[in-house]
């Protein structure tokens, strides 16, 4: 009984759903604030993401006449559910995640693809030209960043010999020098994460000045709020994953580890925000060229290096 309640607490409250959504909003605020400060603006107050969310919840939800009503309203929930499910496999306040098993990295990678696919379907079922183009771009972008992202996230597991995120964290905790080998793949992963989250310079799928806001153009009210929430949570998920894999530093004291987790994720967020502020939006063909001609070969090179290192161990 106690065990079941603890599991429920972990899934729903901490470090599960409640923590994920709250931290998602906080990161959204920090991201916007850093971005604004880099642009010499003031930026929003701390409660802005919450205010936005509550306002959207209170707004009328409009479903386009031509859209498939069932699909249109389920997709946001699917997206949020996939992200929250993936989050329970990520170590937050200690080396061991809430739940883990050998191979959970693969599950997380597949769950991570779901939000992109729901975005594509959401745009496709909206039956609007802007949404259609946005969803096609989302899918095209998925093919561009997916390979380098997977390769970058899997290459550390070659050395650790474990396909579980918690296992990898534990291995690198005991062999800290090997973290340095994975540094290039960390940069590849960060760039791909930028693409995955459709942030600048890879925000072509929701380019405001071209296709208004891409796949979400027909969404409003509660459904849009859930979609926005799932994007925020996706940011937390990806940053936490990168922190767990590439910066596996732990003190084994719970409070310190939680603070360390915040420090790690904030550093990564800062890096992503600088990326966002410093560049112009790339065109779809330029994104594909960059991902396949630069990122993928680099990721492959990292895998070869890691195989050699593994052989030498």
């Amino acid at each position: 009984m106690i065990e079941a309640l603890t599991a429920l607490f972990k899934i729903l409250i901490f470090p599960g759903f409640m923590f994920l959504t709250t931290y998602g909003m906080l990161l959204q605020f920090l991201d916007r604030k850093i971005y604004a400060r880099l642009q010499n603006r003031f930026g929003p107050p701390w409660y802005q993401p919450l205010a936005d969310f509550l306002k959207l919840i209170g707004k009328e939800t409009i479903v386009p006449t031509l859209a498939n009503k069932g699909m249109f309203s389920t997709l946001p929930v699917v997206s949020l559910a996939a992200v929250s499910t993936a989050f329970v496999y990520i170590p937050i306040y200690r080396m061991q995640a809430s739940f883990s098993f050998e191979g959970d990295l693969i599950i997380v990678l597949y769950l991570m693809a779901l939000p992109s696919i729901t975005t594509f379907l959401a745009g496709w079922y909206s039956r609007s030209v802007y949404a259609t183009i946005g969803s096609v771009r989302t899918l095209t972008q998925l093919f561009a960043y997916e390979v380098p992202l997977f390769a970058a996230l899997l290459s550390p597991s070659i050395i650790s010999g474990s396909w579980s995120i918690s296992g990898m964290a534990e291995f690198y905790y005991h062999n800290p020098t090997l973290i340095l080998v994975n540094l290039p793949s960390m940069f590849i992963a960060l760039i791909s994460i930028q693409g995955k989250l459709a942030r600048k310079p890879f925000d072509s799928p929701e380019a405001e000045t071209e296709i208004v806001s891409g796949a979400f153009v027909e969404y409003s009210g509660r459904l849009l709020a859930i979609f926005k929430m799932s994007v925020d949570c996706e940011l937390v998920l990806l940053i936490s994953l990168a922190a767990a894999i590439y910066i596996p530093l732990f003190t084994n004291i719970i409070v310190l580890d939680i603070l360390l987790y915040f420090a790690k994720t904030l550093v990564l967020l800062f890096a992503l925000s600088i990326f966002k502020a410093a560049m112009a939006r790339l065109r779809m063909d330029q994104i594909i060229n960059f991902c396949w001609k630069v990122l993928t070969p680099l990721a492959m090179f990292q895998i070869i290096i890691n195989l050699i290192v593994r052989g030498a161990l």
Binding site: Q39, T209, A277
Partner: peptide, 16 residues
Amino acid sequence: AAHEIGFDTLFMYAWR
């Protein structure tokens, strides 16, 4: 122009 190509930082700087 910077805004059209999604380079909002330059947009803000130029207008400042």
